[in-house]
Design a protein around this nucleic acid. Structure first.
Lengths: 246, 246
DNA sequence: TTTAAAAATTGATCTAGGTCAAAGATCAGA
DNA sequence: TCTGATCTTTGACCTAGATCAATTTTTAAA
């Protein structure tokens, strides 16, 4: 059902030159542990727009996003859809101990995953405190993020939701210049209006209108629809309704 | 309900007769590990309506809810408020590794907490795989719950939100009869209309109206405002918009 | 380069749920 | 038992965002 392909240049990745190793689940692993993981892993590419797993399907692997953006989402019978997570490089896919996927995972852009078969990974996880500790840390971080998102979904206005999403993506793509608050920040928003709507609990029309409102108000500029340019990040932050912390 | 005058004798609790030990963070601990935890713990009672911690405050302890209901919530500067979690017996309070509370924690009913000082608990956590494993499992469970709540907040109608909340509380308070789907289920809803609104991302007026609409439609009956009686749980389930799984 | 499909904008209208306001219930304390 | 303080309900009205319906723009394929 999912169309994963093994392209040859993927062998260029390995744990030593891995772009996400310092933040992924294996962040705390030492060289010998990385060696074991390295022998277990395989890279898979998922083209943009394809499904990685569907809710209810058996999920026999877990892994880390190496490159690209994937989304975690839930759909109701009548088609209403809510994204419940954005999986960026270094984020973990799958839940150890669970054989059935609980959410849909889709490749928003082309995604490269560093995959492990679930059973051997779980065995190694339990035997390896370094891995286990990082896993807990990441789960707690995601829990914090999910709870912040609950405030957004439950209480923020459409404009605040858009501003919050833009700020989060800006932060993750462009860490340094965002923190000081001065200067222009430019970044790619690899999401369609519909994907943004699914994430924010809005319709795509409202997303479009609010993005253009932010543009009209001089908070952002648009180039090529999906590329956003923020003149003053503090001005954007002021539109989020929250966000006092780093 | 239980009168406040009947204050439980806190010294009566210990790990051997602890009502939550089999589900709490210490669930996998053996007797020697429980002995260590037992020497570190202290019980503390928080009266209904009081604050346990406030977001931004230093939080020098962690612990488990032994009895009562606490809420985890976030408030915006202008007063908009969103509950992001309901803490029931066996749920964990605090995040190891974080010195500042990120959310408000309040005692909805009278709450008894089994507390540990954060630093010694963290040291023991890292030295004790049994503790660490249960902690990860609980974090992942909470993450699943948070993500399901995101679907509710982002996409469900007011009526579906109310039905979902009622079903969840019914399930937790009255597990067996709820599952078979037949027969009447009666339970206490220990939440004000305002607390429900904060949890569901609604206003208290909408909560009131929707509860009365469900009553008018024969889905539920009310006795004493906070006591709900469900004639046919499947009828309630049908109103939630989702919930096909156990 | 043309063309069809996909994505995005824009406008007109509708409505679920919010807001404001005023009674009723319920409860806890004296 | 009374009394003030919460809760809760109910009504009238309003608005943010949804819905429906065309365009227009962008992208990708031929």
């Amino acid at each position: 059902m999912h169309s994963a392909s093994q392209t040859p240049n993927l062998s260029a990745f390995n744990c030593c030159n891995c772009p996400i190793q310092k933040r992924a689940v294996c962040a705390y692993c030492d060289n010998s542990e990385l060696l074991v993981l390295g022998s277990m892993k395989s890279y898979k590419t998922y083209p943009a727009g394809t499904s990685i797993v569907r809710a209810g399907d058996p999920l026999d692997f877990v892994g880390s996003v190496v490159q690209g953006v994937a989304s975690l989402s839930q759909t109701m019978e009548d088609g209403r859809r809510q994204m419940v997570g954005l999986l960026l490089p270094s984020d973990f896919v799958g839940r150890p101990g669970r054989a059935m996927a609980k959410f849909d995972v889709e490749a928003t852009s082309e995604v490269i995953l560093c995959q492990f078969n679930r059973a051997p990974f779980e065995r190694f996880l339990h035997a390896t405190p370094h891995l286990h500790e990082r896993m807990l840390e990441m789960a707690l971080d995601e829990l914090d993020a999910a709870r912040e998102w609950m405030l957004l979904l439950g209480r923020k206005t459409a404009r605040e939701k858009i501003a919050s999403l833009l700020l989060i993506v800006a932060k993750r793509q462009n860490a340094a210049p965002v923190l000081d608050g001065i200067g222009m920040v430019k970044f790619d928003l690899n999401l369609t209006r519909e994907a943004m709507a699914d994430y924010l609990g809005l319709t795509l029309e409202t997303v479009s209108r609010q993005i253009n409102a932010l543009k009209k108000d001089g908070i952002i500029q648009l180039e090529k629809k999906r590329q956003i340019c923020v003149n003053n990040i503090d001005q954007l932050r002021a539109e989020t309704g929250t966000d006092f912390e780093g």
